[in-house]
Simulated assay, not measured.
Amino acid sequence: MTDQAFPDGRPGLPSPLPQTIWLTGLSGAGKSTLSRRLDEALRQRGVPCSVLDGDVLRTGLCRDLGFSEDDRRENIRRVAEVARLMNAAGVTVIGALISPLVRDRAMAREIVGPARFLEVHVATPLAVCEARDPKGLYRKARAGELRGFTGIDARYEAPEAPDLRLDTGVLDEETCLQQLLSLLDARGR
């Protein structure tokens, strides 16, 4: 690997630049599963990487936030700032967050930097996500026990032009993984 300068001028950042792969989609779409599979594949390639999973981050870094639009925006801002710092330190980041609003994902792209940010829409249909319901959240939302749940009584704005669109209701994990790796390879990772 050749040395390049960090964005702040420090020498030593390996080429190519680390990326942030931002997986967005409904709860149960497969974001966490794909992020873990991609993390494993990149590590096997010797790529320093880390997964920033929305569910995990809400138990620590973002535990003080709820699910209002303002709190969701702040959650995404924090995660994007962490991703930017990790990218600058030479680590590729795989973010797995519902991140339901276009404006918030655009903010994340701006924070991370467009040259490093790859938006991947895990475009699994609501019916498939609801049938999976791994945490029982859709059942609770339908019963009125959970308010503001994305896809039920809170909106999800699908990306219009993501870098990649994956429907895990149609594509198996291995096919999705290969498409993610191909996307990164095309970026020079």
Rank of each mutant, 00 (worst) to 15 (best):
G148Q: 13
L23Q: 09
L61F: 13
D185G: 10
G113S: 13
L180D: 13
P159W: 07
T124W: 07
Q19F: 03
V170T: 09
G30C: 10
L146E: 08
Q4R: 15
C176H: 06
G95S: 14
L118S: 01
G66R: 12
Q19K: 12
T33A: 14
G113K: 06
L26F: 06
I76S: 10
G54L: 03
A108P: 12
L65F: 02
L137F: 11
P100T: 03
R73S: 11
E130G: 04
S27W: 10
I98H: 06
L57Y: 02
R72F: 15
K31Q: 07
A186Y: 01
V120L: 03
R142P: 08
L181A: 10
P18T: 04
R187T: 00
D53V: 05
G136F: 13
D133Y: 02
S68N: 06
R109A: 13
A186R: 14
P134N: 05
N87T: 14
R58E: 04
D104E: 14
G54E: 05
M86E: 08
E157D: 14
S182M: 09
D172W: 00
V102S: 12
S35L: 03
D167S: 13
E173S: 13
E160Y: 00
R73C: 04
G113T: 07
G144E: 12
E173D: 15
E81V: 14
E81S: 05
G188A: 00
Q179L: 13
F149H: 01
G169M: 04
E69Y: 01
R36P: 01
R165A: 15
R37G: 01
L181K: 12
L42E: 00
D55M: 03
A88Q: 14
V56Q: 11
L183V: 08
A96I: 05
R84D: 08
P14H: 11
R116S: 02
V120R: 02
A106W: 01
P48V: 05
R45Y: 01
A83S: 12
G30L: 03
R84A: 13
V122L: 06
S35R: 09
A108W: 11
S15W: 11
P48G: 04
D172M: 00
L85W: 11
L97E: 03
T24D: 00
A5V: 10
F149S: 03
L166G: 05
L146G: 14
G136E: 09
A29P: 07
V170L: 11
A127V: 14
A141N: 07
R58Y: 02
L26M: 08
G60S: 15
D3A: 06
R10Y: 10
A108T: 11
H121E: 09
L166N: 03
R116P: 01
R116W: 07
G151V: 09
E160T: 11
